[in-house]
Amino acid sequence: MTEKKEDLRIARTKESIKKAFKELVCELPYEKVTVKAIADRAGINRNTFYLHYETTDDVLKEIQSRHISEYIEKVKDLTYTEDYPKLVRSFFEYNEAQDDFFKKVTCDSRFDYIREGMQKKVSAHTHQQTKTLHDKSTYIQNIVRAYSTSVLTLYRQWVSDGRKIPMEEMIELATTLLENGMKGFRNRQ
């Protein structure tokens, strides 16, 4: 029974650290989010923070790991070659369903180094599902994976522009461009 209480306390402490971290990231430039600020906001001391995390980046990585798992679960049966429209839709829908913190990390270039790790893990999973790539050279596989991340660029531009295009229309436009390029866009007109 005591162990369960301790586990619950640890879970609550980690949740309060993550909550404080997310709030601060939404309020401040990332480089100004300090362990002291997180501890103060979470109502703990710095030593308690260091019992669970070594750095603020470790908090971010843990939060991102949860998102990676959730997103991979969402797209687990989809492939690049057969399901690209579904992958584009899943990407937009997943991103739009997340909190402001997640959207900031997705769209703010200062988080590219963290997000790239997330993209690589998701891409590796989808790549495994895409059997038609397995007999291609590593270089071709790398180019296909790099191209598949173009959806992020389109999403970020859409967000940067204030989401002026309705999401359904944006998903269709992104799918057209990514599947058929400019020729597909011209034909869509």
Rank of each mutant, 00 (worst) to 15 (best):
I44G: 02
R110G: 11
L173C: 09
H134T: 07
K74D: 09
Q157Y: 12
T176H: 03
Y84F: 15
S123H: 01
R186L: 15
T132D: 13
V105W: 00
D77H: 14
D112G: 10
L133K: 01
F102W: 04
A37G: 09
Y139C: 05
K103E: 03
Y94E: 00
Y113R: 11
T126R: 00
E23I: 11
R46I: 10
Y84W: 13
Y94K: 01
D108G: 06
K104M: 07
I68H: 00
L8E: 14
K103Q: 12
D100I: 09
P166F: 11
H134Q: 12
I63V: 15
T153N: 10
L173D: 03
K18P: 05
E172M: 12
K164F: 08
W158Y: 03
S65N: 13
I114G: 06
R41Y: 05
R46Y: 04
S109L: 13
E96D: 08
R46W: 04
S65A: 14
K103S: 05
I38H: 00
V59I: 08
Q141S: 07
G43W: 06
D7M: 14
Q141V: 11
S16F: 12
F21L: 05
K4G: 04
N142V: 04
A39I: 06
Q128A: 15
E93H: 08
K74C: 10
M167Y: 04
Y113M: 10
E168G: 10
H134E: 14
L173T: 10
M170E: 07
E168T: 13
E70R: 13
R163M: 11
L24F: 08
S148T: 07
T176R: 02
K136Q: 09
A174G: 04
E70Y: 13
V35C: 06
T79G: 02
Q157P: 03
E3C: 06
S109F: 14
E93K: 07
Y53S: 02
P85Y: 01
L177V: 13
S150G: 13
Y155H: 00
L177C: 09
A20M: 05
E23R: 05
M170C: 04
V75K: 02
I140F: 14
A124G: 10
L152N: 05
S123V: 06
T138R: 15
Q119P: 00
